[in-house]
Design a protein around this nucleic acid. Structure first.
Length: 431
RNA sequence: GUGAGAGUAGCUCAGUUGGAUAGAGCAUCGGAUUGUGGUUCCGAGGGUCGAGGGUUCGAAUCCCUUCUCUCACCCCA
């Protein structure tokens, strides 16, 4: 009986695995060179961990189960709660700021679609315990540092940056009450998805005609300062502070040399209520994929999980959308070869198999990727196999071997030379 | 959860008004080729035509049911 793969999962055959590893290795390199340390946690936690900051709808999209002790558990749909738990447990002994990263495998029971599966990997970086906007800038830089390394240019992607503090200050100044903010965020987040008329209709329904005009005008702002045409900040007030933060962030990003990747966009809201400061998303420039990643500052992360009031800022990037984008941009093919070999050792006759195996073992011990053929087919056939396997060199064990010599063939040029085996083994790189 | 589209070999697809043993390219394996690879030529294996039921002398093709996948919506931590 044939059992199909589970909906929304992927099988990583060697070629896909090579691509996947290349992506994950890049994430890890970028994290490490930006000063982040790797951590990980269990792939399941108490179900309650994911109920703290989320509603029932999100709980429905969890893979949850009971263990034999009747405990309610869930496979992790995100790693942030685990991070909060781990940091809280050692909050007094960890040196600040805490800069950690992880590449967890996550599961969400959502309906799969383009760029979204039920099992995926997500690169997470977080800086905990640093209030300065510099930390937000560093998170954004690390993100761009990676995306730039894999070959994405400012013509391919943009980091769209805004601030929850800024947004809330503007909206309150326009005359929207604090209680209405959260439901309004939901609408503003959808602006790019809705036709302009539908958006403005929905907006009028929420805040009335006069205010909605101002909101629409604000949502069209191209720069942070242009908001002053709509509302005037009071010196030292919430809006004033938020504007300074955004400007400060932009100036840091300039110092880091990535201004050409970054743009202010008041339409970046982010779904969840818990963001409190700078928020950002990276989008492909055509805008036909969902966000490549998203992040921002959240003040209450540790506190929500029973810890102190320490702020955090971070970013999460899934592997699905990224891979689609890289593939569309042609950035996957050449760089990744699933198989490559240093040596392919081939005996021309069955009675040379013993010596072949000895040599193969010696080369492997020296650290070279080396294989041989199980079948002692014709030389021509074995060379063909070696060529298919992308071997850099072939070592032919033939008549010369009686005199202690091997034939070393460079597969890229076709040149070959006869070399004494003991000299070769003493310094294989020399040949 | 809602809506639309699609299911034929490992992959990409053909398959006439419903007609006999369901085809091609790529991939895999073997041979031409037992001391020289990438090319070429020849051959082989591989299918419950997603599944179940119905109409018919006869179904990959028409009808019903169901499953799966894709895309969009909800949601997006």
């Amino acid at each position: 009986m044939k059992i199909p793969p589970v909906k929304g999962t992927r099988d990583f055959y060697p070629q896909e695995m090579a691509i996947h590893n290349w992506i994950v290795d890049g994430w890890k390199r970028a994290s490490l060179r930006n000063g982040f340390e790797e951590y990980d946690g269990p792939i399941f936690e108490y179900l309650q961990m994911y109920q703290i900051k989320s509603g029932d709808e999100i709980v429905e999209q969890l893979f949850s189960f009971k263990d034999r002790g009747d405990r309610d558990l869930a496979i992790r749909p995100e790693i942030t709660p685990t991070l909060a738990r781990m940091v809280n447990q050692r909050i007094n002994t960890l040196p600040k700021p805490i800069k950690w990263f992880s590449v967890p495998r996550l599961c969400r029971a959502e309906r799969p679609q383009k760029g979204r599966l039920r099992e995926f990997f997500q690169w997470n970086i977080d800086i905990i315990g640093e209030d300065s906007v510099l930390a937000d800038a560093e998170v954004i830089f690390t993100t761009v540092d990676y995306l730039r390394e894999v070959g994405l240019t400012p013509n391919d992607i943009k980091v769209k940056i805004s601030s929850r503090k800024f947004l809330s200050a503007v909206l309150k100044k326009i005359g929207i009450s604090e209680e209405k903010l959260n439901s309004l965020y939901g609408l503003l987040d959808k602006k790019t998805k809705l036709p302009a008329e539908a958006f403005s209709e929905a907006l009028i329904q929420q805040v009335g005609e006069r205010i909605s005009e101002q909101v629409i005008s604000f949502m069209g702002s191209q720069s942070v300062t242009s908001v002053e045409n709509i509302v005037k900040p009071d010196a030292g007030g919430e809006l004033d502070i938020a504007i300074k933060e955004l400007e400060d962030c932009a100036s840091r990003l300039g110092q880091m040399g990535i201004s050409d990747y970054c743009v202010f966009d008041p339409g970046i809201v982010r779904g969840l209520a818990y963001y409190t400061g700078i928020v950002f998303e990276v989008h492909d420039i055509q805008g036909d994929l969902r966000a490549i990643c998203g992040g921002g500052r959240f003040d209450n992360l540790l506190h929500d999980f029973g810890g102190p009031k320490i702020t955090a800022t971070g970013m999460g990037m899934g592997d699905c959308v990224l891979e689609i984008l890289l593939s569309e941009k042609g950035l996957l093919n050449q760089k990744i070869s699933a198989r490559s070999l240093d040596y392919f050792v081939l005996p021309v006759a069955d009675n040379l198999l013993d010596d072949t195996i000895k040599l193969v073992a010696q080369l492997r011990t020296l650290g070279f990727k080396t294989i041989f053929s199980y079948k002692s087919g014709s030389l021509s056939k074995q060379l063909k196999t070696a060529s298919e396997r992308n071997a850099k060199y072939c070592i032919i064990i033939g008549d010369e071997f009686k005199a202690g010599d091997i034939v070393l063939k460079d597969m890229s040029t076709g040149n070959q030379k006869t070399v004494p085996l003991n000299e070769f083994l003493a310094n294989p790189g020399k040949f």
